[in-house]
Amino acid sequence: MSENGTKILVVDDASFMRTVLKDILKSNGLATEIIEAADGVEAVRQFITHRPDLITMDVNMPKADGLQALKGIMKVDHTARVIMVTSVEQKHIIQDAMKSGARDYIIKPFDKGSVGLVLNKALRAK
C-alpha cells in the first residue's frame, strides 16, 4: 500500500460502471484515492503516472481492450495488482487474463459483497 493511503485505478469505458465501482470502493472503505480511465490506452498512461495499489480493468473497451492494457501494465510493473472486470464469463478470456498476470476477476452485474472480498484479498496480497 502507498504511504498516503490506498490508490485505486478504475478502468471502464462506461462512466456508469466506473461510478458503480467507485461507490463499492467507498462503501467498503477500500480506497482513499480513486483514479479513472475510459479505455486501455488511458489506463496504461494513468498507471504510469499514479502507480496505483490496485487496478480494476474492464475487458471489453474501445481503443485498447482490457487484456491489451493488462499486458501493457505488466510490462511496466509485473507486480501490479490487476482485477479484470467482465460481463462475459468465458473461461478462455479469464484464463488469458490470469496467464497475463491478472490476480482475479469480477463479473457484472456486481454482487457488492463478493466484489469487496475479491478487491480486499488482492490488496492484502504481495
Binding site: 462506461a14 460502471m17 461510478t19 460481463s87 464469463e89 457484472k108 452485474p109
Partner: peptide, 18 residues
C-alpha cells in the same frame, strides 16, 4: 452518464445471453 448507464445494461444483458 444516462446514455452510458442504458448502454451498459444492454452490454450486461447481451453478455448474460452470450
Amino acid at each position: 452518464d444516462g446514455k452510458s448507464a442504458v448502454a451498459e445494461i444492454g452490454n450486461i444483458l447481451a453478455a448474460s445471453f452470450f
